[in-house]
Design a binder for these strands. Structure first.
Length: 313
DNA sequence: CTTCTTGTTACTGA
DNA sequence: ATCAGTAACAAGAA
């Protein structure tokens, strides 16, 4: 999608009253956040914590502040869409961004283009209307947690609970654990629509609605197809598509509709590569004549090309 | 007012 | 015991 078409896409959507402004931080977005934060946070000491709204803080603000103050950030990890911050002494901070969460890192500057705002991208002072927590670091920099919808959460856990939570997730794609054998095995003895399987975090970690649709399109497979009738060739193609789509999305630093920003205030660029997500009613970019359709599959709105993602029986 | 958005979990029914 | 499917929840937009 070139720049001109992209503009039209936004205009059409707004005219039709669809809400295109929300993003979903899925694996590629959360991984982008992690990669941006590691070089600027690891080794830094948290000198002060400001909690502007207690709602996203699980298990009490007191415990939250006490657990993090004067700790040093040792390591930032990710499982699926969950960030795991190791602050040493067996204490871990879990951060889930859910739909509209942002982590913004600022040193010196007090505004960020595209911070949460009801009126679109523009310069927003930090902390913004939707900043709930600020971590002040020993070098004068700050990390802001913003979340318009307040669906995201911040949770302090010990090593045992962290391990228990991490263990609930299935294999992480793009790691050695996610092999073709593993994928074939989780497809066995199941008969759910393939899209529901891709969204099941206990089987594959990190895929959400955007990338589930994009992966199915890339594989040329109807997202509602039951896994039991997939051919071996289709299963292998799906496995390959999971890797290639997620890798490409990370390369372009994720997808931004409106609210997703990396910690340095940058939008993701994968929007330009979306083939089906939020393209319903538009021409298929792969085949001649297909019009992207929309259907509810596994309780989720799904987009696909009815011509090149055939329903096989 | 209703309906839609998402990731996650609790629950139901098979 | 295991799996499929759905409701519920958070908060805001239209």
């Amino acid at each position: 999608m070139n720049r001109c078409k992209q503009k039209l896409f936004y205009a059409d959507k707004e005219k039709n009253g669809f809400n295109v402004r929300f993003f979903m931080p899925e694996l590629p977005e959360v991984e982008t956040v992690r990669r941006d934060l590691v070089p600027v946070l690891v080794g830094k000491k948290i000198t002060k914590i400001t909690v502007l709204h207690a709602a996203p803080v699980k298990d009490g603000v007191k415990k939250f502040i006490k657990s993090l103050q004067f700790k040093t950030i040792h390591h930032i990890d990710r499982i699926g869409k969950l960030l795991v911050v190791d602050v040493g002494e067996g204490v871990f901070l879990l951060i889930h961004l859910k739909m509209t969460g942002q982590l913004i890192y600022r040193k010196g500057a007090t505004t960020v283009e595209g911070g949460h705002s009801l009126s679109g991208f523009k310069d927003v002072p930090m902390p913004s209307t939707f900043t709930w927590v600020v971590w002040h670091l020993n070098d004068g920099s700050d990390l802001y947690f913003n979340d318009m919808r307040k669906f995201g959460y911040l949770k302090i856990v010990d090593a045992q609970e962290k391990d228990r939570i991490v263990a609930r997730y299935g294999a992480e794609p793009l790691t050695k654990k996610f092999t073709l054998d593993y994928f074939l095995k989780i497809l066995e003895k199941r008969n759910t629509p393939i899209k529901s399987l891709l969204l099941n975090q206990t089987l594959v970690a990190g895929i959400g609605n955007i990338y589930a649709d994009e992966i199915c399109f890339d594989a040329g497979i109807f997202p509602g197809i039951r896994v039991a009738i997939l051919t071996m060739k289709q299963k292998k193609k799906l496995f390959q598509s999971i890797g290639s789509i997620l890798k490409k999305a990370i390369k372009y630093k994720g997808t931004t509709f409106k609210n997703y920003l990396s910690p340095h205030g940058k939008k993701g660029n994968f929007l330009d590569f979306l083939q089906v997500y939020q393209r319903e009613g538009k021409k298929c970019l792969r085949c001649d004549g297909g019009i992207i359709a929309q259907k509810r599959i596994g309780g989720r709105n799904s987009r696909y090309c009815p011509l090149c993602q055939k329903v096989l029986h």
